Simulated scan of single mutants.
Amino acid sequence: MTEPHSEHISCAGCGVRLQTEAKDKLGYVPSQALNRSPVICQRCFRIKNYNEASGITLNHDDFLKLLHQVGQTKSLVVNIVDIFDFEGSLISGLPRFAGDNPVVLCVNKIDLLPKVTNFNKIVNWVQRQAKEFGLKAVEVVLCSAKQNIGFERVLQVLDAYRNGRDIYVVGATNVGKSTLINRLIRDYSDLEAELTTSQYPGTTLDIVKIPLDDGSFIIDTPGIVYHHRLTELVSKRDLSKLMPDRPVKPLVFQLNERQTVFFGSLVRFDFVQGERQSFTFYVSNAITAHRTKLERADELYEEHKGELLSPPSREDLELLPKWTKHPMRIPKGKQYDVSISGLGWVKVNSVAGADLMIHAPKGVKIAVRESLI
C-alpha cells in the first residue's frame, strides 16, 4: 500500500502516481526520495541518469481511454508526428478524439531530411497526406525540437490558436513529444522540472499537467504504441541504429529487374519486374545495405542473417516476427515512395512503373504514397 504522504504525488517526469512499496511496479520511488524537488519515480531516474530502458508501458486500450478525454475539453490539440515515419506515427481516428478542438500538426525531426530539401514542398505534401487520412489541421508546422529548428514558428502558431486554452499534446511513441514539450515549458512557464525523455518507447505513462504562467496548462499524454512500426519490434540495442541522429545520406541503387537489396536482416527489397531504373533509399546510415541477385537472395539470407546481414544479431533476430511478403505494383506516370514504418522509405525515381516485393516482419506497415522528396 502506498504511504499516505505519497498518495497524491505524481512523477514530474512521466506523470504516473508515485508509490513506495513495490519496486517492480509503476511509480516506485524510495521513501527518502520523496523529499526531493521535483520528485521523479525510480524508472525516470534511471532513464535520465543511466539511459536505461524499462519494459513497463501502458497498454493500447489505456492510451485510448486517456485520449478520449481530450474531446471533452476546450483546448488546442497539438499532434506531433515523425517526418521519418509519417504514416506509421499518425494517430488513426484523431479527429474523433479531438472533437471540435482545433488541431495543429507539428511535424518533428526535419533535421533528419537531406539538407537540400525544399521545406515548402514538404508542408504541401504533409497537408495532402493529412487530408487523405481525414485529418483537418488548422496549421502544419515543421520543426526539430532536438536541434531547435522552426521552434519560433511553433510558438507563433500556438499563440495564434490557443486563446488562453490548455494545450493537449498527443502523438505516437518516439516522435519526440517530450523533447518538444520541454522546449515549450522553457518558453511558457517558470517550471524547472522537465519531462523524462529517452530514445525508448512509452516514456510518458500518464497525463502530465504542466502549469503555464497564464493559469492554463500544457497537458502531455502518453505516446500511443503502434506495433506496426519496426522501431517497436526491435531490441533496445538495435533501436538507436534504426533511428537516425543526423541528416540521412540517401543511398541510390541502379537496379535491373530481379535484383534484391537487404537492409541488415530487418527488411528485404526485391525489384521483381520493370525496366532498369534507380531507387533512392532513405534509411538510417547505421543500417548497412547489401545488393544481390533475386535468385540468390534466399540462400544469402539463410547463410548470413544476423552476421553479415545485421542488425539484428542472430540472437535478436529470433525475437522478431517472421517475414511476410508485400507485393507492390508501382503505377506508371508519377514518382512514388514505398514507406516501411520504422525503417524509412524508398523513392522509385522512374515514372515507368515497377513490380516490387517487400519482405518485412509480420505486422510492419508498408504503404505506397506520393513521393515526399
Rank of each mutant, 00 (worst) to 15 (best):
R17H: 12
V78D: 09
G215A: 01
V364L: 05
L112N: 10
L135N: 11
G215H: 01
D214Q: 08
S240G: 02
R186P: 12
N124Q: 14
Q259I: 11
K334S: 13
S92M: 00
L158I: 15
I340P: 00
Y282L: 03
P211C: 07
R276Y: 02
R96S: 14
V169D: 05
K362M: 14
P38E: 09
Q72L: 14
Q254V: 01
K334D: 09
V140S: 09
I56F: 08
A145I: 09
L343H: 08
L155V: 11
S278H: 06
R258N: 11
K177M: 11
Q273I: 00
H304V: 05
A145K: 12
D82W: 09
E194Y: 04
Y282N: 05
G150F: 03
A98P: 04
S350I: 10
V348N: 00
L372S: 06
A352N: 07
V16R: 01
T117P: 11
N349H: 07
V225A: 07
C106P: 03
E303L: 08
Q42C: 06
V338H: 00
F133G: 12
N148A: 15
S240N: 07
T203K: 13
N101K: 10
R268F: 06
L212P: 02
L158M: 14
R258E: 13
K74M: 14
V123L: 01
K146G: 01
A172C: 15
V351E: 12
G164S: 05
H60A: 14
D24V: 05
R46L: 12
L142H: 14
V141C: 04
V175W: 09
A98V: 04
F63G: 08
F97N: 08
V70G: 03
R329N: 06
S284V: 11
R183D: 05
L195G: 02
F133N: 15
P312Y: 07
P211L: 10
F279C: 09
A33I: 12
A145P: 13
E299H: 15
D85Y: 07
K236Q: 10
L233F: 03
G342F: 12
A145T: 15
L242M: 03
Y336S: 00
K48C: 01
V234E: 10
I9L: 15
K249C: 15
R258M: 07
